[in-house]
Nucleic acid binder design. Structure first.
Lengths: 135, 135
DNA sequence: TGGTATCAGTTAACGTGTTAAACAGATGCC
DNA sequence: GGCATCTGTTTAACACGTTAACTGATACCA
């Protein structure tokens, strides 16, 4: 419950900015993942952007229809779909990234760098603990 | 991002159990809020279960169709809709509550009570900090 | 080599999150 | 009393989360 509230509060900061650029939070996650590691197939992209496959399918279709990314089939394995940023997609990323970083910096300033680091560490640990317990 | 992952990991524990009882996470939040404080109007219920009004409208319609809650109009202010648990709703809550508590206890055991308390405190603080900054 | 299991991705169905707009009941002001 | 405004709730539209079922391609193996 507290996790949900905290996450909503954080996203409330980012959403309006992304909206101004015509993106949702998840679409932004996909562009960011592709900037880090372009030309990967859908499974890899799903893992890196923490999206489930059905969501990613819809998002990729949407972004492709706006020419922000391209999709082609892996020649070696016809099942796989390789996704890449287009020049247009990269330009959009470059326009948004400074705003995104500014919002992160603002949160860091308000909440305090050390406390934020501690929170990150606890969250990552919490995540790992629960994942291990599932097995 | 870490917030999202942590929340997903936590809900992955609860969802299957709730699903066995035919509820979603949000429907469960509504029942829990009504158990704490019955006969409140929709705005109050939305605040207590941390749902937006449109979501709550749908959920209340759904739960009402399954006779788990009842809805009537406030006599003093015809705009307000007063929501209450039915006997059936209360019985369902009583059946689920022990499972829910067991899952919480399990998480507490795996992650550690003190660390969980620290995490709660940081999250609540994070939430408040961001909310204050919005004003 | 052919049959079967597995894998990558998609589609479908349902419920929720978010935003904007619509709506009726309440309130305030002249 | 009539009219603009505000409030509580609902509806609509679009996108995502989750689960399950489906399709086509690949791998395995008797």
């Amino acid at each position: 419950m507290e996790l949900m509230k905290a996450r909503e509060a954080a996203m409330a900061r980012f959403r309006p900015m992304l909206r101004d650029h015509g993106l949702t939070e998840q679409q932004w996650r996909v562009l960011r993942a592709l900037t880090d590691c372009d030309n990967i197939d859908a499974s890899e992209l799903a893992a890196r952007s923490f999206l489930l496959a059905p969501s990613l399918t819809r998002i990729v279709q949407h972004l492709e229809s706006e020419a922000l990314i391209s999709r082609r089939q892996n020649a070696a394995d016809q099942r796989k779909a390789v996704v890449a940023l287009t020049a247009k997609g990269r330009r959009l990323f470059d326009r948004i990234a400074p705003h995104s970083e500014a919002l992160y910096a603002q949160i860091e300033k308000e909440f305090g760098f050390d406390r934020l680091e501690l929170l990150y560490e606890l969250l990552a640990d919490f995540y790992q603990t629960l994942r291990n317990g599932d097995a």
